[in-house]
Amino acid sequence: EVTIKANLIFANGSTQTAEFKGTFEKATSEAYAYADTLKKDNGEYTVDVADKGYTLNAKFAG
């Protein structure tokens, strides 16, 4: 089991951190699915991958 950390950075400057656990593939998929649920209210996002894929920095356009 691994933990994927998602740093969510919103256009207004606020941030949120979420963690997803499971296999690498499952946890990564859940992190992206969570970011997708936030698109409606926060706009499209881009992701910078860090820490060999164990940290995802998602920046929302607003």
Rank of each mutant, 00 (worst) to 15 (best):
E1L: 13
E1I: 14
E1M: 14
E1W: 14
E1N: 11
V2I: 10
V2L: 06
V2K: 04
V2S: 06
T3S: 08
T3G: 03
T3C: 12
T3R: 07
T3P: 03
T3V: 12
T3K: 07
I4G: 01
I4N: 00
I4R: 00
I4K: 00
I4A: 00
I4D: 01
I4S: 00
I4V: 10
I4Q: 00
I4T: 01
K5F: 10
K5Q: 09
K5I: 14
K5Y: 11
A6K: 00
A6F: 14
A6E: 04
A6Y: 05
A6L: 15
A6D: 02
A6M: 15
A6P: 01
N7K: 07
N7R: 06
N7S: 06
N7C: 13
L8F: 15
L8Q: 01
L8K: 00
L8H: 02
L8E: 01
L8V: 08
L8G: 03
L8C: 11
I9E: 08
I9R: 06
I9W: 10
I9F: 13
I9A: 06
I9P: 03
I9L: 10
I9N: 06
I9M: 11
F10Q: 02
F10K: 02
F10A: 01
F10H: 03
A11G: 08
A11C: 12
A11P: 14
A11D: 07
N12L: 04
N12W: 05
N12K: 02
N12T: 08
N12C: 10
N12G: 07
N12E: 05
N12F: 05
G13H: 05
G13A: 05
G13S: 05
G13P: 00
G13Q: 05
G13M: 05
G13W: 03
S14V: 14
S14G: 09
S14R: 11
S14L: 13
S14I: 14
S14F: 13
S14Y: 13
S14T: 14
S14Q: 14
T15M: 14
T15L: 11
T15Y: 11
T15C: 14
T15G: 07
T15R: 11
T15S: 11
T15N: 07
Q16I: 15
Q16F: 14
Q16Y: 13
Q16M: 14
Q16N: 08
T17R: 09
T17C: 13
T17Q: 11
T17D: 05
T17I: 12
T17G: 05
T17A: 08
T17V: 13
A18K: 15
A18N: 08
A18W: 13
A18L: 15
A18M: 15
A18C: 15
E19T: 13
E19A: 09
E19I: 15
E19L: 14
E19K: 08
F20Q: 00
F20S: 00
F20T: 00
F20V: 02
F20C: 04
F20G: 00
K21P: 03
K21L: 08
K21W: 10
K21A: 07
K21R: 14
K21Y: 13
G22W: 03
G22N: 05
G22E: 01
G22I: 03
G22F: 04
G22Q: 01
T23I: 07
T23Y: 07
T23E: 09
T23P: 09
T23S: 11
T23A: 08
F24W: 10
F24T: 03
F24N: 04
F24K: 07
F24L: 09
F24S: 04
F24E: 02
F24D: 01
F24I: 08
F24A: 05
E25I: 10
E25G: 08
E25M: 09
K26M: 11
K26N: 12
K26G: 11
K26F: 11
A27E: 01
A27M: 01
A27L: 00
A27D: 02
A27G: 02
A27P: 02
T28N: 05
T28M: 13
T28D: 03
T28S: 08
T28Q: 09
S29H: 12
S29C: 15
S29M: 14
S29W: 12
S29V: 10
S29R: 14
S29L: 14
S29Y: 12
S29Q: 14
S29K: 14
S29E: 14
S29A: 15
S29P: 00
E30F: 07
E30C: 12
E30Y: 08
E30M: 14
E30K: 09
E30P: 01
E30S: 09
E30D: 14
E30L: 14
A31I: 07
A31C: 06
A31K: 01
A31M: 08
A31V: 09
Y32R: 07
Y32I: 12
Y32F: 11
Y32S: 02
Y32D: 01
Y32G: 01
A33N: 08
A33L: 09
A33R: 10
A33M: 09
A33F: 08
A33C: 08
A33P: 01
A33H: 09
A33G: 07
Y34G: 01
Y34N: 01
Y34Q: 00
Y34T: 02
Y34R: 03
A35C: 15
A35Q: 01
A35V: 15
A35W: 14
D36V: 04
D36C: 07
D36S: 05
D36T: 05
D36A: 07
T37H: 10
T37N: 12
T37E: 12
T37F: 13
T37Y: 12
T37D: 10
L38Y: 15
L38V: 05
K39Q: 07
K39G: 06
K39N: 04
K39R: 12
K39Y: 05
K39F: 07
K39D: 00
K40N: 10
K40C: 12
K40H: 12
K40V: 11
K40D: 10
K40L: 11
K40W: 10
K40F: 11
K40E: 11
D41R: 08
D41M: 12
D41Y: 12
D41W: 12
D41A: 12
N42V: 04
N42L: 09
N42G: 06
N42Q: 12
N42I: 05
N42D: 04
N42C: 15
G43E: 04
G43A: 02
G43P: 03
G43C: 05
G43L: 03
G43R: 00
G43T: 01
G43F: 02
E44W: 10
E44A: 11
E44H: 10
E44Q: 10
Y45L: 05
Y45F: 08
Y45M: 05
Y45P: 02
Y45T: 00
T46W: 10
T46A: 08
T46Q: 09
T46K: 10
V47N: 01
V47W: 08
V47Y: 04
V47F: 07
V47D: 02
V47K: 02
D48S: 13
D48E: 15
D48Q: 13
D48I: 14
V49A: 07
V49E: 07
V49R: 06
V49S: 09
V49Y: 09
V49H: 07
V49C: 08
V49W: 15
V49M: 08
V49I: 14
V49G: 03
A50E: 12
A50V: 12
A50G: 09
A50M: 13
A50W: 09
A50I: 11
D51Y: 02
D51F: 03
D51E: 07
D51G: 03
D51M: 03
D51S: 03
D51H: 04
D51A: 02
K52A: 14
K52V: 06
K52S: 14
K52R: 13
K52Y: 14
K52D: 15
G53P: 03
G53A: 03
G53K: 01
G53C: 06
G53F: 01
G53Y: 01
G53Q: 03
Y54P: 02
Y54A: 06
Y54W: 07
Y54T: 07
T55G: 03
T55H: 04
T55D: 04
T55C: 07
T55K: 04
L56E: 04
L56W: 09
L56D: 04
L56G: 04
L56P: 02
L56R: 00
N57S: 07
N57A: 04
N57R: 03
N57P: 03
N57M: 07
N57Q: 05
A58N: 04
A58H: 08
A58Y: 15
A58M: 15
A58P: 00
A58F: 15
A58K: 02
K59V: 15
K59S: 13
K59F: 15
K59W: 15
K59A: 10
K59P: 05
K59D: 05
K59H: 15
K59R: 12
F60Q: 04
F60L: 00
F60W: 04
F60H: 02
F60E: 03
F60Y: 13
F60R: 00
F60N: 02
A61F: 14
A61G: 11
A61R: 12
A61N: 13
A61L: 14
A61I: 12
G62E: 07
G62D: 08
G62W: 07
G62I: 06
G62A: 07
